[in-house]
Design a protein around this nucleic acid. Sequence first.
RNA 1: GCGCCCGUAGCUCAGUCGGAUAGAGCGGGAGACUUCUAAUCUCUAGGUCGGGGGUUCGAAUCCCUCCGGGCGCGCCA
Length: 552
Amino acid sequence: MITDHLSDLVRQALERAAAEGAFSPDGAPEIEFERPRRREHGDWSTNLALGLAKGAGNPRTLAQALAERMPASTLVETVEVAGPGFLNFHLSPGWLYDVVTRAADEGSAFGRADSGSGTEVNIEYVSANPTGPINVVSGRHAAIGDAIANLLAAVGCEVTREHYVNDAGGQLKLFGESIGTHYLRHFGVEAELPDDGYKGAYVADLADEIVQEIGDELVEATPEERTAGLLELGLVRMLARSRTTLERFGTHFDVWTLERSLHESGAVETALARLGDRGYAEEREGALWFKATDLGDDKDRVLVRSNGAPTYLASDVAYFVHKFDRGFDRLIYLLGPDHHGTVARMFATAEALGYERDRVEIHLVQVVTLSSGGTTLKASKRAGVVVALNELMDEVGVDAARYTFLTRAMESPLEFDIELVKQQAPENPVFYVQYAHARICSILRRADEEGIRTGAAGAPLDRLVHPSETELMRKLAAYEEVVPEAAHLRAPQRIARYIEELAGAFSAFYRDCKVISEDDELSAERLKLCVATKRVIGDGLGLLGVTAPERM
RNA sequence: GCGCCCGUAGCUCAGUCGGAUAGAGCGGGAGACUUCUAAUCUCUAGGUCGGGGGUUCGAAUCCCUCCGGGCGCGCCA
């Protein structure tokens, strides 16, 4: 990347300045570059002198000393001192032509980095009780999880996308009983829904399906057998539905782990024993407690209840071991904000097991507020206000739904106005970006029909000098920083922002510069710029899990 | 009460490991379609970055404090 080159130049200038006594070096400073907001501040800028002069010396004088000693480079036109002591670099067009050439080249891995290479990451998201349909909240988690996974892969990480299913515990039993109520009623047996039972219409649907399959087989069974049997049948169906919905949304998990399997394999027992061996578990009042307060949590937590039933925390402990045993360097969790109370104990758990807590990363994805026609509804499985992800996809489509989920930072609450996204679909930014992509494809088709070809890999691009062309090329260049930054910050919204700006820069170019003209040489150069733009827009949309249509 | 998140244009939100004159989309106002796709483009109005202190050459960004909103604080998940 260009910034590496600039860093080298600055480092050499620093060494010369030190050798000539222009300043006294104090360790090796970090040399960082940023692209200034204002065009007249150059293409790249560093505040190095401002940092070095902290407390001693005049930053402008130091900056001037560095500027005077800056080695020559074919890529740098001028270096100037500005403001309180910034060093502003104005580059020659060559760096942009290099960017376009690489971006247009399929084999160049433009926008890919290796900062994460050698790191195996497990990212778990969407995980929920399989007792209800996938809702819009899960949709937000799915979109964000997918995008972060894509971003991590783009910087070289080995990524495993994982979905955990809480198929054990009291909630599941309640679910089985709820199905049982409808099942019995189907055969004319009077039955009441249990307190806090599942009330959604899908429960009755499930019961009907099960009746179709097994008939009255379980009517005469004991309540325990009936609940267990129906639970099993219901669970299989719920999981299948979840998987279908998620696949429709474009979310595919590499691994589905069932909580039950952790119990059945003995992993829970083993993990609890390990906590005990390390002195972090003890019997008290008939229950087994995790001494979480020793590790920063504000309360101790129960692992096994006095009635012998393990808590979810017990499975979580085993799950940590299970994941780390599979060789992951880092575990990422996306949880709902209602899990805030579990974060401290999660870190404590990891540490108690002997893993560094900074290998665990927990993000709380904030709530989705759905509004529709002026009415605001809070989407929450608990509160019973559930809008299924399937319904949302029916209403606004997969691309618009995904994109809307990804334009906001995950730690910000998201207001999703279904009516707005639906009614104003043409003005939705996602369509704007897709349109730019389709428009480029249209130009490329036309060029193909007219037999105009883009130049070969080494062909010059020095006729791309229009301000709109320069702006577009500069925007393309930014992609190489945007991807690693978005990956590092786990911030897919940066990609969304970026491709909107890129699409905007393309529109200006399209307005000002006729691509296909009488001038074959110029046409070839502009076509290459189009190809590069198309690839970057397509790549950015791909990172977000949104399609890049050839026609609209 | 304690903890976490949020507070930026009329609305929805970016920007925050401190940088130079704070941005986008939508909405408001005024314009542009014999065109390589008008699902577009141009111009315009709109701000005490919740309030107040502090650190700094420099604060939307860091610290303190207050206010407002959301969420959590169980041998529920």
